[in-house]
Amino acid sequence: MKMATETPLISLEGEAQGTTYHIKYRDERQRNVKAEVESVLTDIDKCLSLYQPDSEISQFNRGETHRFRSAHFYPVLKKAAEVFRASEGAFDPTVLPLVEAYGFGAKKVGSPENANVDSLLQLVGFQYVTFDAVLIRKAKSNVRIDLNGIAQGYTVDVLVELLESKGINQYMVEVGGEIRAKGQKGEGQFWTVGVANPLRPEQLQAKMPLTNRAMTTAGNYRNRYVSNGQVFGHIINPKTGLMEQSDLLSVTVFAADAMTADAYDTAFMVMGLEKTKRFLETHPELDAYLLYTDSEGKLQVFATNGVKTL
């Protein structure tokens, strides 16, 4: 049997979900799974893409109920509901009308100055959506959902399942910056991931080893909006309907799977620094690396005990 280090590393990359993907793995049989990867990505887009008018999520948003056609919709909704409850509504997929009103999202038709927040807030609340393993329905006709805050993490997990179904157990899968890794890159070599400095995004703030875990990052520093000298991020608080003016610039979450990490990085951006710290104290299954500015505008770091930097 060959040693892992004798097996060449296979690298796949391409475009998906409005971003890019990169997959690296070691396989003694040297199988190239790109065609199957692309098939998975296409199937998920047909279900969860807001950019495709005939996707399942787009059809549901236009109607009242939807009977699931693929296996992808239900597990993402289930995780979304779990994190919605745990975060007390900080993560809320029904924020789509506000996202569009502010000029973000697929349509880019609104603007922060003209967003009619008060009327749109009546449509925000994941409690207006009910579902089981077969069907999803809405309690108010104009409620619409956006699962972009969780879909890329889910995609990573599905690609991991594909690799593991083939007996591949040394890999790093990344879609749009959401990452999950298992095993080692090579003998004595960890898979490593980087977190950008939000004040200088071209520079790395930290490098970390990653194995048998997922890591995702949400940042409030690339999409920013300035009004009367105040800087607002693109993260919208689903409770107030307002764009957050937050000292929290970047949230990196570590969890057993990428979908969980992806949902919580969004929730933590909404919750802010102190509330996130308190939440993490009671959720040892999660680790986080938070970058924020202090009262003097200097970059500061908060990391839970499970975060190791290189």
Results as ranks from 00 to 15, higher is better:
residue 157 D to F: 02
residue 157 D to G: 04
residue 158 V to W: 05
residue 160 V to D: 14
residue 162 L to Y: 06
residue 164 E to G: 03
residue 164 E to I: 01
residue 165 S to K: 15
residue 165 S to V: 00
residue 167 G to W: 10
residue 168 I to M: 15
residue 171 Y to K: 11
residue 173 V to T: 10
residue 175 V to G: 11
residue 177 G to E: 11
residue 178 E to W: 01
residue 180 R to C: 00
residue 180 R to Q: 03
residue 182 K to S: 06
residue 185 K to R: 15
residue 187 E to R: 13
residue 188 G to S: 09
residue 188 G to P: 00
residue 189 Q to L: 03
residue 189 Q to F: 05
residue 189 Q to A: 04
residue 191 W to G: 00
residue 192 T to P: 00
residue 192 T to K: 14
residue 193 V to W: 10
residue 194 G to H: 10
residue 196 A to D: 09
residue 197 N to L: 03
residue 197 N to H: 13
residue 198 P to H: 06
residue 198 P to G: 08
residue 198 P to T: 06
residue 199 L to T: 03
residue 199 L to P: 00
residue 200 R to N: 15
residue 202 E to Q: 14
residue 202 E to M: 09
residue 203 Q to F: 05
residue 205 Q to D: 08
residue 207 K to S: 09
residue 210 L to H: 05
residue 211 T to F: 06
residue 211 T to K: 15
residue 215 M to Q: 12
residue 216 T to M: 05
residue 216 T to K: 12
residue 217 T to D: 10
residue 217 T to R: 12
residue 217 T to C: 08
residue 218 A to Q: 13
residue 218 A to N: 15
residue 219 G to C: 02
residue 220 N to S: 09
residue 221 Y to H: 09
residue 222 R to C: 00
residue 224 R to S: 09
residue 226 V to K: 12
residue 226 V to A: 05
residue 228 N to C: 04
residue 229 G to R: 08
residue 230 Q to I: 01
residue 230 Q to V: 00
residue 232 F to D: 14
residue 234 H to C: 01
residue 235 I to W: 00
residue 235 I to Q: 07
residue 236 I to D: 03
residue 239 K to H: 09
residue 239 K to Y: 02
residue 240 T to I: 06
residue 241 G to K: 12
residue 243 M to N: 13
residue 243 M to T: 04
residue 248 L to S: 09
residue 249 L to A: 03
residue 249 L to K: 13
residue 250 S to Q: 15
residue 250 S to T: 14
residue 252 T to I: 06
residue 252 T to R: 12
residue 252 T to L: 09
residue 254 F to H: 10
residue 255 A to C: 14
residue 255 A to P: 14
residue 256 A to P: 00
residue 258 A to E: 11
residue 259 M to P: 07
residue 260 T to N: 11
residue 261 A to K: 14
residue 261 A to N: 11
residue 262 D to C: 01
residue 264 Y to R: 13
residue 265 D to L: 13
residue 265 D to Q: 15
residue 265 D to R: 15
residue 266 T to R: 13
residue 266 T to K: 15
residue 268 F to G: 04
residue 269 M to P: 00
residue 271 M to I: 08
residue 272 G to W: 07
residue 272 G to A: 03
residue 273 L to H: 07
residue 277 K to G: 03
residue 277 K to H: 11
residue 277 K to R: 15
residue 280 L to S: 05
residue 281 E to Q: 14
residue 282 T to I: 04
residue 283 H to T: 06
residue 284 P to Q: 14
residue 285 E to M: 01
residue 285 E to F: 01
residue 286 L to Q: 12
residue 287 D to Q: 13
residue 288 A to E: 08
residue 289 Y to I: 03
residue 291 L to M: 13
